[in-house]
């Protein structure tokens, strides 16, 4: 693994908006069949980093390398054509479209000839349902169902299956588990593992350390626009990671201060901050 060329690599990437530096000297690598977890608290620059990766923003300085070659994305479409697919928090967002129709938005399969091409609904539904079922979501059988009627986890899975179907090599998942319940989240984590097994490089953005530790091979913690820590699976404990994300203010200190409060106040916890 170590001597392979990473699929996607960031070298000394900076991003600033006018005088405000949002990202500073970001160095990241992700290989095929590997899950890179990007951890960080709100406002750490995660969204800016994702938008830079998927072509919405251009880096102010530094390089993005794909397969070792310098690339430049002028718009999100460029990144998609190179095989970088982003799935946002709520997955496919066409809530009132059918599974088959939303799966093929922009690349509709047609049958017929010349100007009489018609949308091939049966084929679209069949491919979409098969793609989702291949990822282990067997509850989806009918491609005419509306996307909005699926559960959050199923929608995520549909979006991931869609990205994989259309040839994604790098999958960027932006907080896919944030809005989900425990069971749904574990569903999505299984799908992430399946994507990894199929040789995709996955960049998994989250602030839930448990979810990250369940699937991650490689972790990077982002604090105020800089990478504060970069380590591999097993090198740090959950507590250490949480402490890092909180910006060095360790959980242990917080717990100690609560304990000392309880000691002096007859075991009552401190009142919540106003």
């Amino acid at each position: 693994m170590a001597d392979q060329t990473p699929i996607l690599e960031l070298e000394h990437v900076d991003k600033s908006f006018g005088p405000i530096d949002v990202l500073m000297d970001i160095n990241l690598k992700v290989h095929a069949g590997e899950v890179l977890c990007l951890l960080g608290d709100n406002g750490a620059g995660k969204s800016t980093l994702i938008k830079t990766l998927c072509g919405v923003f251009k880096p102010t300085a530094g390089k993005i390398l794909m397969d070792g070659k310098d690339v430049r994305f002028n718009r999100p479409r460029d990144a998609q054509e190179m095989g970088i697919s982003t799935v946002h928090q709520f997955g496919g967002t066409f809530a009132l479209m059918s599974i088959g129709r939303s799966f093929f938005v922009g690349v509709e399969p047609t049958r017929g000839w010349g100007p009489f091409k018609i949308f091939d609904r049966a084929k679209a539904n069949e491919i979409a349902v098969r793609a989702v079922r291949d990822f282990g979501i067997t509850r989806i059988e009918d491609g005419d169902r509306l996307v909005g009627g699926l559960s959050g986890g199923e929608r995520q899975s549909l979006a991931i299956a869609r990205a994989v179907h259309f040839g994604a090599r790098v999958l960027i998942l932006d907080e896919p588990t944030a809005a989900l319940g425990v069971k749904q989240a574990s569903h999505v984590l299984r799908i992430i593992n399946e994507a990894k097994r199929r040789g995709l490089a996955v960049i998994f953005i989250t602030h839930q350390v448990m979810h990250a530790m369940a699937v991650g091979d490689h972790f990077a913690v982002l604090i105020r626009g800089a990478i504060a820590a970069d380590f591999r699976r097993g090198e740090k404990t959950r507590e250490e990671i949480t402490d890092l994300m909180a910006g060095g203010e360790t959980m242990a200190d917080l717990e100690a201060s609560i304990e000392s409060y309880e000691d002096t106040h007859e075991g009552r916890p401190p009142p919540p901050a106003p």
Partner: peptide
């Protein structure tokens, strides 16, 4: 029936995603 109809639904459903999908 035509494939363009899908674009109209996608445009009304979520314009940003529709644009990113190449419509």
């Amino acid at each position: 029936v035509s494939p363009w109809g899908n674009w109209v639904f996608a445009l009304g459903g979520d314009e940003t995603s529709a644009r990113n999908a190449g419509i």
